[in-house]
Design a protein around this nucleic acid. Structure first.
Length: 154
DNA sequence: GCCAACGTTGGC
DNA sequence: GCCAACGTTGGC
């Protein structure tokens, strides 16, 4: 079982939405490197839910991969912000996963806390200028994150 | 294949 | 709103 970190803007889709819906298709990823990570995911993998472009940004939840190799339907929807006219139905460019709600952490771990307690080698999202919305997390780092998320006080 | 211009991401 | 970082595009 592997661990991942997935970013989303809560104004677009947040942990509260997933908690309410129970399961979601992680659509809208339009970056090849992120797509390649999505394709490496296996059912049962865990993913940290990270809120970006909000105050404060940070890890707010935990998810479990429930289905892999899902065709992202928004690539074929001309009305979607994620429409990709170059993608062909018989060879879709954008493949993603389904995830089920696992946990919601309040208050979670803010980016400032992550920076204070983890290194840029621990977490790719801490690298300056990082924009990847899907990144792998090493197991030892994931365990430290989980321990920290479940016991807010150090 | 190079690279400048441009658009997007996302923290601050 | 600003700006740094990075990906993509397109001319050559």
């Amino acid at each position: 079982m592997a661990f991942w970190l997935l970013k989303s803007e809560p104004d677009v889709y947040g942990i509260a939405d997933l908690e309410r819906e129970g399961e979601t298709l992680w659509d809208g990823v339009r970056n090849y490197q992120a797509r390649n990570f999505l394709r490496q995911m296996a059912v049962g993998d865990r993913a940290f839910f990270y809120h970006s472009n909000t105050k404060p940004p940070g890890i707010v939840g935990l998810m479990t991969v429930s289905a892999t190799e899902q065709v992202d339907p928004s690539q074929f929807d001309p009305d979607s912000d994620y429409y990709d006219p170059r993608s062909q139905a018989d060879n879709p460019t954008w493949i993603t996963v389904k995830l089920i709600f696992g946990d919601r952490f309040q208050p979670g771990l803010t980016l400032a806390e992550l920076r204070a307690e983890f290194t840029t080698e621990d977490l790719l999202i801490l690298r300056p200028g990082n924009r990847l919305s899907v990144t792998p997390v090493e197991e030892d780092v994931a365990e430290r994150l989980l321990q920290r998320l479940r016991s807010p006080a150090i």
